[in-house]
Design a protein around this nucleic acid. Structure first.
Lengths: 191, 191, 191, 191
DNA sequence: GATGAATGAGCGTTCATTCAT
DNA sequence: AATGAATGAACGCTCATTCAT
């Protein structure tokens, strides 16, 4: 009995992502994923219980990687503004480096299948960010408004911009990023 | 011969939207749409060339209605800030009134099927908004940064908030809306 | 109440023939026939009870015309050989003039649907030919072998040749026809 | 994994042939073929790319078997007339033994779907027959007329007779065959 | 008489999944 | 562990036919 081949698992996940990004969730079948990954359809079921589990795993892993890329460099000693700035740059860099991850996540999280269990798991990945905001509010640096409001302004516009830029194959330069960040900071910071 | 029954067309479009919002694009078949709409599968093809056309029509019509709801009340005599505020309120009201439209549009526009032709058509609906921003920049009220940046900050956080609120079945009160709007305005306006 | 429009009936029959010859029986639907004929699908059912009747009528009419073209010029005073020769030429001329009729008939008569009733009706059209053969045998000009044998040799090779020539877009000249006829005559005539 | 089951392939081909001969090309669906063959509709697509390929394969294989039955016993040392006679008998025996093959081939080759590529492949199977005719012409035994003429007279009447006899459930005895052959030989031989 | 709308049944094909090796 | 064969159910769509005007 051979051990499970981690490369094969990766190949399956990656093929699924590529196909979904190219043809859409509705046009991506298990057979096509298998063919793209160079394995038998039956093999997929060795690594994943079924199609739902495969997709969910993919989503969770992508989000986990995304959170690491953004938050790992975070340091409690940083000033709020610098921390924000750092995350903002990390995030945009991640989008440019792994557009596939990002495009997939955006497509997947808007589908109603995503059950609340893993949605919570995914949100857990971003807990450090939540704590940062709380600290910012305590320090009086951030506006005293509901948390979800700050989250929405801090990151969603950037996501939207990245989505466009990925689609159109363009990227912001340092100046553009600076301008974008200052919009975001004005939105969330206390005057 | 019988005339085409416009109610039937509406029923089909609406059934498609409901099913897609409930079970996802990938799990919504023509037969299911037909059953939900109370017509034969074949009948759908009298009103729509194929599944793709049906979904695309739905998307375009939803976006058209959305743009009307937001922009119709717009008036060139309004000050920029008031115009922004009006649209902002219109949009949130629309989300609360037609959560289905909004949830569907978010899911659909993230799928890779959407071809660029109708994407442009849809963007055309929002041209008055683009003009408003230009006027704001000329008047020196809005930041002098690229247009897409302002668009991203002006509306995307609200969309994100609405998405959450629709999912969680909650709504912002006037105070919340006020707070949210002031974040947005700080983001785009010239201090 | 308008009278039935004979042109419409003809248009339907002709459209059916063209489509069947082009795409085959299996790919020719009532809707397509209607579209090609410039009428509504429902209109076809005014002129023909159903698809089967339409096709059968077409076949019978084609065969009737074919028999007229071949046999009308026949004259009991002609010598057997001359009568044969005449029919042979009429038949080949008919193939060249109405390849559609001929291609359709060949396709249709090989399908198992053709029921024996109209097969007999069709065979009746060619009764004069049968009588000619009988006369030939009585006069001792034709071989004293079963009738169906003589029929097979008298006409089937020509049909086969015509089929090829229609497909390949070529035609026999007088010399070729002469050669072909002499083969046929040698086959059926008594030394 | 299971190896491909050659019996299954045969069963599918045979079921297709039986159904087509019974109900016609137009009324033979993949589901019916599957049911008749005792397999799932999906299984057919393991053995054949699509319906067209299935039917074409069936036609080509039938024609290949037919050519073997007729030509395998051929020997270059035989005199032309004896060779002709042998083939003639082989062919009629084949019709009686495998009326299905023969009925199917006749129906299929008259449908317009048959593309020229496989038509050429099929014609290749009968090359030895073509060579026999050429030899006969060189030896001065056969008439000096175009090849296709001789082919038409040598075999087509027999095909026609066999078709009738299969339909009517009768068969020629030795005497009938003798008479038929002598008609054919008179048609093609040089006095 | 003539029509386009309407339909349930069926089309050719692919699906997610399991079987047998 | 890994496979290609195998499947019943479902897919998107079209069929022959009838309905309502």
């Amino acid at each position: 009995m051979r051990p499970k081949d981690e490369n094969k698992r990766e190949a399956i996940l990656n093929s699924a992502m590529v196909l979904i990004n190219t043809y859409g969730l509705a046009h991506t079948s298990m057979s096509k994923i298998a063919r793209e990954a160079g394995v038998s359809p039956a093999t997929i079921y060795i690594y994943f219980e079924n199609k739902d589990h495969l997709l969910t795993s993919l989503y969770v892993e992508v989000k986990r990687e995304m959170s690491h890329a953004i938050l790992d460099s975070l340091d409690d000693d940083l000033e709020i503004r610098d921390a924000f700035r750092l995350m903002w740059e990390n995030l945009y860099a991640y989008y440019l480096a792994y557009p596939d991850h990002f495009v997939f996540a955006e497509q997947f999280c808007n589908a109603p299948i995503v059950d609340s269990v893993q949605q919570e798991e995914v949100e857990g990945f971003f807990a450090p960010f939540t704590r940062l905001i709380e600290r910012g509010q305590e320090e009086g640096v951030l506006k005293d408004v509901p948390m979800d409001l700050l989250v929405a302004f801090a990151f969603h516009p950037l996501t939207q911009l990245a989505k466009q830029h990925v689609k159109e194959g363009i990227a912001m330069d340092d100046e553009g990023l600076e301008a974008a960040f200052s919009c975001a900071w004005d939105a969330v910071s206390r005057g």
